[in-house]
Amino acid sequence: MAAGVLVVTEIALGKPVAPVYELLGLAGRLAAGTSGKVEAALLGRGIEGCASDLIARGAERVYLADEGALADYEPERWVARLVRIARESGPAAILLPHTTLGADLAPRLAFRLDTAVAAGCVEIARDSGRLLFTRPCYGGSFRETLSMRTAPAVATVRGGCHEAAARDPRRKGEVVRVEASTAEPAPRMNVVARERTVSDGMRLEEARVVVAGGRGLEGADGFVLLAELAQALGGAVGASRVPCDLGWCPHSMQIGLTGKTVAPEVYIAVGISGAGHHMAGCGNAGNIIAINTDREAAIYGQARWGLVGDYRQVIPPLIAAIREIHATARKSE
């Protein structure tokens, strides 16, 4: 029975996104003690240099397709190439990060391979030879564990749920080039415009501290204050869905079931009630701090610290207190 695990690499700003390292860590644990290998598929342009990085993170074989036609994610070409890689590799499972790219790609790949997909997994385990996929459902309020009748199983995995493989440059692995075939599919859609709302600075998904605002901010101005708090903490700003829908902030800041998944060390939820849909995207944060006027808000049920109060009155002194602590620490160095 197939036992290998193939990780599909997503690249941002020239390097694999952080969840890819977590997937390699997970793949290593799933393949351990089996005959299966940890493999990675690396598609794009000018990304050859990432192969050694993937090997250092645990990939024993990297399938590399480095060419102009794969520069930007385009489903037809990517799926066709990944189908060929999957046929060659014959893994038990194909793992993708649960990002917009992964969520778009995984079902296509599964149907093309005539198999099944589990989206947004938080845990994958091996149980007497078979793989079990645990994922949130019903808006994040419940979890289900699935097994698959067909192989390979395709799964997207939420960020922050698994330990990344440590980087070890002594690890060895082979690189297998997967060249374009003569019957390369033509793209079936044409990108006519692209508008980026995220700066190249810190990626929300990779920030150590995230300050997120909700409906309780009562307007776009609240996000100016949150940005100041995030800056004092060296973090990034996110949001619940409500402020995004109301146009107080861009949609790219949405955290939750249908937004981004973040798992920072510190998550400060300001004016967020803590709906299951929201917590599905931040429940794995190391320390949740809730600032809310309503002591009964559900968010306190998942917070390490709760501060009952109006954010407008609490955040300015909080910023001052944090800056003071930082200043004292610098002086004593």
């Binding site: 990002t99 859609m189 006519v192 692209r194 508008e195």
Partner: peptide, 9 residues
């Protein structure tokens, strides 16, 4: 994840 894109198909 990082903004919007418009496609024609």
């Amino acid at each position: 994840d990082d903004g919007l894109e418009t496609v024609e198909a």
